[in-house]
């Protein structure tokens, strides 16, 4: 593999955002995802290759290590930040069609709930798998999901909740989405959620951690 892409892959996998970032300590002073992406573009590497050969495999490694309990939320968050720094350079190429998105993923934490760490991690992992993200934030009701779907027809929807109490709001949102666009694929996740609950409320998919969501979406796209 191209040496620059290998370095970028490493920077994203270990959460090196930019040169001045003190994290991780063993990469101190070295170029981060921000510089390395710019260098790759300057060297004429195709944006599509940057995405496919560096970012996607890096986030794939991160997802795998997380599900094996080798890393935890902080490391994953730093990797996501590094990916975000790289993505900032690639955004214009998505807009111009030079990079093909695998699809659109609309995500939000459901009504009544303000917890967004889990939701953000899933969003970044999915973005790192080459999807376009529409992040509706927290405390999102059915109306806002429907509105986002009308602007992004065919998008896959992800619902997040951290509390046993707010989780119950997922059912209503799933029902309203399915009523308006029965073909919309809906994924649910969050600490209290499980497969039984997912089936009970008529959602299409549940995974206990972000990697499962990414695998499922990639199957949909392929």
């Amino acid at each position: 593999m191209n040496e620059k892409l290998a370095k970028l892959l490493e920077a994203v996998e270990y959460g090196k955002v930019d040169q001045k970032s003190p994290y991780p300590p063993n990469l101190k002073g070295m170029d981060g995802a921000h510089e390395l992406t710019q260098q790759a573009l300057d060297a004429g590497i195709r944006p599509q290759d940057i995405l496919e050969e560096a970012l996607i495999p890096a986030m794939g490694n991160v997802g795998r290590k997380f599900s094996e309990n080798k890393i935890f939320v902080p490391q994953m968050l730093m990797s996501a930040k590094a990916m975000g720094a790289s993505m900032a350079h690639l955004k214009p190429f998505f807009a111009s069609g030079k990079i093909k998105s695998r699809g659109t993923f609309v995500i939000g934490t459901v009504k009544g709930d303000l917890h967004d760490i889990g939701k953000n991690l899933v969003a970044m992992m999915v973005e790192g798998a080459g999807w376009t993200i529409v992040d509706l934030g927290v405390d999102v009701d059915a109306g806002r999901f429907l509105e986002a779907l009308s602007k992004n027809p065919g998008a896959v929807v992800g619902l997040s909740a951290l509390l046993t109490t707010t989780m119950t709001n997922m059912g209503e949102i799933v029902a309203k989405i399915k009523e308006s666009t029965p073909d919309t694929v809906i994924m649910v996740g969050g600490a209290p959620v499980n497969m039984d609950f997912c089936r009970k409320i008529g959602a299409d998919f549940y995974a206990p951690e972000p990697r499962g969501a990414v695998d499922f979406l990639n199957q949909l796209a392929s």
């Binding site: 303000l114 967004d116 953000n120």
Partner: peptide, 16 residues
Amino acid sequence: LSDDEDFALQFAINMG
């Protein structure tokens, strides 16, 4: 705390 912009990052960093 869940309203605080800094909280999520603080929360992640302090897990070490």
